[in-house]
């Protein structure tokens, strides 16, 4: 786990520690199995083409899970993720596999965020962030916001 983040450590504009992710066709199969989302849009070429998205796309919910991962890694074990929302704005296409477990070259995604607000509410020290997933062309294909509660050094 990363070191513990405290309320006093962040300012408006502070960056959330970026998280690198690479989506592969193998990962999409694994996610389908673990999540129960067996929509053929995520593994069948003809189905995806007929739907007008070209070829199978990364599950929006997988990108959403990356954003949860971004926030929970950043806030540490004593932090609490209180709210998270995101919208899927663009399609992402997974890398295909070169070997059993090694992907071909292709897109790399970064999950990022910035602090937009920090405030006290009742007993809680809250921090609001804008968060997003960007592809190799720096396009934000998923974006949203999150609210976290952080421990305080002074309380």
């Amino acid at each position: 786990m990363a070191k513990q983040l405290y309320y006093e450590d962040v300012e408006i504009g502070s960056e959330v520690t970026a998280l690198k992710k690479i989506a592969t066709t193998r990962m999409l199969v694994q996610y389908a199995g673990a999540s129960g989302d067996f929509n053929p849009l995520h593994y069948e070429d003809d189905f995806a083409r007929n739907l007008g998205v070209g070829r199978p796309i990364v599950h929006g919910l997988l990108k959403r899970a990356w954003l949860v991962n971004l926030m929970t890694d950043w806030i540490g074990e004593k932090g609490r993720l209180k709210k998270l929302s995101c919208r899927y704005r663009g399609m992402d296409y997974p890398r295909k596999m070169k070997t059993f477990d090694e992907p071909l070259d292709g897109d790399t995604w970064w999950c990022k965020g910035n602090v937009t607000r920090k405030y006290l509410e009742g007993e809680e020290c809250l921090v609001e962030c804008e968060i997003w997933v960007e592809n190799g062309n720096k396009e934000k294909t998923t974006s949203g916001s999150a609210v976290v509660a952080l421990p305080s050094k002074v309380k």
């Binding site: 992710k21 949860v68 929970t72």
Partner: peptide, 29 residues
């Protein structure tokens, strides 16, 4: 494992048992 989140609270039974929760926790979402 499928979403690539290696947080031991979700993945490591022993670690989770020793945490403030005392059990494996579910990732938000």
């Amino acid at each position: 494992q499928a979403v690539g989140d290696s947080n031991p609270l979700y993945n490591d039974v022993e670690y989770a048992a020793g945490s403030e929760w005392g059990r494996v926790m579910a990732p938000p979402g």
